[in-house]
Write a protein that binds this DNA or RNA. Structure first.
Lengths: 172, 172
DNA sequence: GGCATATATTTGCATTTACAAATATTGTGA
DNA sequence: TCACAATATTTGTAAATGCAAATATATGCC
């Protein structure tokens, strides 16, 4: 006896995944035109927002696995998009990642494309709807992250035992 | 001069990706407990919803690339979750995929877990908020898919030149 | 100060993924 | 009915992914 309370079209993870995949598909061509992969774009966007950041903070902001991110940063260094260095005075376990001038320039060419994509995605939305949607997505993320933290302790998305990365320039 | 109109925390693809990744991370353990991968679960859920389906329709419903899906189906057949067969009388290019009894049983054990996850994700949401969120995600998907179709013609997410798969039992 | 433990990043490795090419079958027009 | 284009699926292959182990550094305790 199937519980008919389960309808894919009303199942949040399904709806979210579908939107995520479609957005990636739509942005792919613009990224390709700039010779930037999706993950690289995410890193660039994070750095634009937060300034120079440590590797683990970029991982947590971008939702990229930290080992994948390490390799992505290799590629980005090769392309001259970012540089890595140890902090001058502080904790030498840490690696600071910073966008180069070129990386910043590439980011600035992509940002308008990203905004265009968002505009497309939100066609027909009132300003109120748009902010309601975004606010709800923030709440959903918080709910799921909190749940993850309560359970596995580390199977969770928010891998920050320090402090949630500010996303406000905290370089130094 | 950075256009300060671009804020990650208000950028829809960022918010959506973050939620998608967190949901996957939260569901992972339950899938592992049933020895089912994420993609396999998506296929099972699609079949539960739509009954026996052709490969390409499963791909479009699940947002799984069709070549990846083909291999996923191999694994699922090996595990006894689904069977593939050519349709009796119809178009012999097509392959019909059907859940086995075992596949159906596994699905039914996962569905309540999936519902629990959704409940967690939507904690604190009123019924109205919940349906508003889902309805907006449907609209966003439609917007992006329409845009994709208009452009690349095939770089689009909705790969269905036939007819949008019903998601309502259309087997036969 | 020195050793055990904790934190940060990278690397090893097997699996997964997606693009493109190959294969199989159908539909169409001469 | 014979080529030829269209559709559906699978397979070849190189790159991306994520887990776990390895490495590097830091911190706390005695």
């Amino acid at each position: 006896m199937k519980s008919r309370r389960f309808d894919l079209e009303r199942f949040l993870p399904y709806l979210v995944n579908r939107v995520a995949v479609s957005l990636v598909g739509a942005f792919g061509p613009m990224l390709a035109a700039s010779d930037v992969t999706l993950q690289e774009w995410r890193v660039l966007a994070a750095l634009r927002q937060g300034g120079a950041m440590r590797v683990s903070d970029i991982a947590s902001v971008t939702s990229i696995d930290i080992s994948t991110l390490s390799r992505t940063l290799n590629a980005m260094e090769r392309k001259g998009l970012v540089v890595r260095h140890r902090p001058k005075g502080g904790d030498a376990r840490v690696v600071i990642v910073e966008a180069t001038e070129h990386g910043g320039a590439v980011t600035e060419t992509l940002v308008p494309e990203a905004q265009k994509l968002q505009t497309t995605a939100l066609a027909g939305f009132s300003a109120e709807e748009e902010s309601a949607l975004k606010a709800m997505l923030v709440r959903v993320f918080a709910n799921v992250a909190a749940q993850g933290k309560r359970n596995g302790g580390d199977a969770a998305p928010a891998r920050a035992p320090r402090s949630p990365p500010t996303l406000a320039s905290d370089r130094g």
